[in-house]
């Protein structure tokens, strides 16, 4: 991997993180080791992002990303 020319600060799950500028959302999902990534819900700056757009969206300085996970337990 080539060293990034520019890095940006984004907020992932409430925490500031440094990533190369223009990082795609799909790359962030990989780098954050998101569990069962095909079933994660992503909110970018308080709006839901459709899974089809994960590859298209380039993240910008100050963006806030939340991963929402399925949690199915509770009864049984």
């Amino acid at each position: 991997m080539v060293a990034p020319e520019e890095s940006m600060k984004i907020i992932v799950g409430g925490k500031f993180k440094d990533y190369p500028e223009g990082l795609r959302l799909s790359a962030l999902i990989r780098q954050e080791n998101v569990e069962t990534p095909e079933y994660v819900t992503v909110a970018l700056n308080d709006d839901f992002v459709e899974a089809a757009a994960f590859d298209e969206i380039a993240l910008k300085e100050g963006d806030s990303v939340e991963f929402l996970y399925f949690m199915g337990g509770g009864g049984e």
Binding site: T36, F70, G72, G73
Partner: peptide
């Protein structure tokens, strides 16, 4: 449903009986 849209396929996401709690 706004947040989670559709249930994941059976066994795609671990449940408590498989993953523990």
């Amino acid at each position: 449903r706004c947040a989670f849209k559709e249930p994941p396929p059976p066994d795609a996401v671990p449940t408590c009986s498989q993953a523990g709690v």
